[in-house]
Every structure is written in C-alpha cells, then in structure tokens.
Nucleic acid binder design. Structure first.
Lengths: 224, 224
DNA sequence: CAAGCTAGGCGTACGATGTACACCTGTCAA
DNA sequence: TTGACAGGTGTACATCGTACGCCTAGCTTG
C-alpha cells in the first residue's frame, strides 16, 4: 500500500521540483533519479506525469518564461528595457535555462510572452513589420548572449582573472589581455552595469532608426 | 601486435576527428566510443592523448577559435565587423561550439584572439579601458546570442513557423505572433541580413560614444 | 453494496555513456 | 642486449534514461 500520508504527485509539482533541483545543483544535477528521490518517489513514477526528459525540460522552460515580466504600460522603450532586464534576471536565477529558452516546443507562457513583445514593437513602438523582427532578434540575441556570458564567466571575474594570469604565460605576448586581467582584478566587474550599457546602446539605436516610415529592411548606418 | 599499417594517433588527430564528428552528428553524437570507432581504435586509446572529455572539448573549442579571423588592418569599425562576422561564421560551421566558447580553460588560439580584439579596441579605436570592456562585452554577447538563436531556430524559420501555426491554437489570442508566423512563412527569413542589422546598429552606437575623452563608465543615452 | 476500471504508484532490466585499472607490445636509448 | 616507455587493448563499473509489466487504492456504475 503506497503510503497514503503523502500527497499525490501531479505535473505541476514535478515541474516545480525539477526547477528547484536544477537551480540548486545545476543542469547536470537534474536527473530523473535525483528528481524522483527529491519527490520521495521511484524514478519511473515521474513518467506518469511527463513523457520523457525533453518534455520535462520544455515544461521547466515555460515556468521560467512565466517569471518574465511582459512589456506593459510606459513608453515602448522603458517597456522593452524592463522586459529585457526581467528576462536577464530570470536567466540569472535559472542558469540551466540559458540556451534552452527557445528549444523544444513552446509552452503557453512562451507564446504569451512573444506575442506581448511583438505587440509592444508593432503597436506601441509603431515599427513596420520587418523592423520589428530586426529589433526583436537584436534584443533577444543580446539578452541571451549576455546571460550566456554571465553564466559561463560565473560571477567572480576578478578572481578568475587573477587565477588566469599564470595561464597566460609569457606576459609580453598578450599585453592587452594582461591589462584586462590585472585591471579587472583591481577594480572589479559589475555585470549589471555592463548589461545596462549594452541595453541602452541598443534601445538608443532602435529609437534613432526611422520607425513609422520605411516599410522594409531599414538599416541604421553603413550605406552600401 | 597492434596493426602497424595504420598511422599512430596523436592529440591533433584526435581533436580534428572530434570536431568532424560533432560537426556531422551534433554534440550528442560526440561520444568517446564513437570517436574511437571513427579513428579505428578502442575507446580507452583516446585517453592516452586527452585527459578526459572535458579536456577534449577544450581542445576542440580552441580549434574553432583558430578559425576566427583576427581584427586587422582597416579602420577599427570594419576590423571589428569582420571579426564578428567571422566568429558567427565559425559558430555556424560548428554549432556544437555555441555556448561553449568561453567555458573550460582557454587554449592558445583563444588567448591570441581575445588579445587581438582588445588591442583593436584600445589601440586602434582608442577606447578608454572601461569603455573597451563595455564594447567587447556588448559585441560578444550579441554574436554569441545571435549564434545561439541561429542554432536553435535551426535555419528553416518559415517551415517552422508554418508548422507552429497549429500549436498556437486560438488565433485570436496571439494576433501579433500569428502575424510573424504567417508573414515570415511568406517572405522568408535571412539570418545573414538579420545579423548585419544588429551588428551595424551596435558598431554605430560604439562609434557615437565619445571615445578618447571620458575615462570612465561612459553611457550612451539615458542620463540618470 | 458489489464489481471492475483506471490513475498512479513500484520493480526489474537493458543499452549507452565516461572512465579506472591492469595488461600487452613495438620502438628506441643506453 | 636490455630495459624503459609510449601507446594501444580488454574488462569492469557506476550512472543515466527509460521500456515493460505488475499491483492497488479509490472512484464509477449497476
């Protein structure tokens, strides 16, 4: 008789536990066996709620999407800025999700999110279609890429840099690298500032491009 | 007697074969056993040339770095543009490397590359230190993020989009998403153009920021 | 209330993976 | 001639995802 004291499982509980597990131990800690253990259940029990590990991941990713603020109110630039920061925040809280947000089949939160961003670009910002696509791609590439760097460079840039001074070996061979390494070790490195610099530059650029007029394939500079 | 007809293995051959294997079959096809088979050798033979799989990957990544053009000659903007395009190209040819370029311990090609880019930013472009760091982070985040999108969205956006129309379900719920899906299915989607739009916008922004003067923490707009 | 359906647990088993460890054998230096 | 050693081999193990079948509590239905 399966101990009736414990509540029964359901999909939502499995997904939440999976997210917690991955948050705590990283992606490689997310194993069906480990997840089952955390839920006080035998591994195969999970497959009554999730088809396989890929589908599990899809569900987890959608939970992350659900955490991201939708662009709303304000003017479009601050709306976009807020959603970008929120997206970075979510990826920072769930590093295992970096590089997996757009894989697999999209869940409801995913769809809602993309629709909301597109609405902001088309309706609020008034970008012509092609321009909206450009803008969306640019911003997502930046945020995802930044999150990737932030994850792999793992926070402690100064420490990492110091440790790497030996790796560099012959100091005279890579003077500019050495400068970065020593300078950052001294002055530190704030990912948040770094992120905002790029985000502002991008939003400025998007604001500068003629929005309401040219219907197709606007390019900022580089006449060619 | 280990058949003397075949050449002996060495580290470089192992790395090259590993890259080929991953290029052809994707990252999950890169297994020690598969690699050994491709080299006509027993799995454990590889460990005479590579400490473990992580080190193997480090070596592979450095081969990719070696393929990336260094910024050189020209004015700094076209130099940076060239290296960014080249980096995207390399990541396109080796999708398994996306998200792994800055993990593990950096190899010689990696160090040389980063040093060269920093030299371009500091010496040629004349950016003050902090600004150079900002610029580098911004550009790498963009290129890496774009490569990530290009990899996960897997090329055939129109087909993908068409297939996804069913997934979206209630069309009235996500009108802007539907627009993108139908429109891209019709007009197609060129990653190359998309990439250049963002790259130009970023380079323009970097060119606009006062380079030679303010020594610290320059921000493009958004006075606060 | 009896019967039986079914959702949701459990146990066992299999193939794939990375790699530790011991062994074996040409090749070459002393 | 001999002995070290670089480099290939074979076996073995822990860990992973998951296929397949069983078992039972509790609800549905006559």
């Amino acid at each position: 008789m399966p101990d009736t004291g414990r509540e029964r499982l359901n999909r939502a509980k499995v997904l939440r536990a999976a997210v917690e597990l991955a948050d705590e131990g990283g992606f490689e800690a997310l194993t069906m066996r480990g997840l089952a253990a955390r839920l006080g259940v035998v591994p195969m029990a999970l497959y009554k709620h999730v088809a396989d590990k890929r589908e599990l991941l899809d569900g987890m990713v959608d939970l992350v999407f659900a955490e991201v603020e939708l662009p709303d109110g304000d003017d479009w630039r601050t709306a976009l800025r807020t959603r970008a920061s929120s997206l970075r925040q979510a990826l920072l809280a769930h590093p295992w999700a970096v590089g997996r947000m757009e894989t697999g089949t999209p869940g409801p939160a995913n769809l809602r999110h993309h629709n909301a961003v597109l609405q902001c670009l088309r309706r609020d910002a008034g970008f012509p279609f092609r321009m909206a696509v450009h803008a969306y791609n640019l911003m997502d590439a930046y945020v995802y890429g930044f999150a990737l760097q932030e994850k792999t460079l793992a926070g402690d840039i100064p420490a990492e840099a110091a440790r790497r001074r030996e790796t560099v070996g012959d100091v005279t061979k890579y003077p500019y690298l050495v400068e970065v390494v020593t300078e950052l070790a001294k002055t530190g490195f704030a990912f948040a500032d770094e992120f905002e610099f790029g985000l502002d530059l991008i939003l400025d650029g998007l604001g500068r491009v003629p929005s309401g007029r040219t219907p197709d394939d606007v390019r900022p500079g580089r006449a060619r």
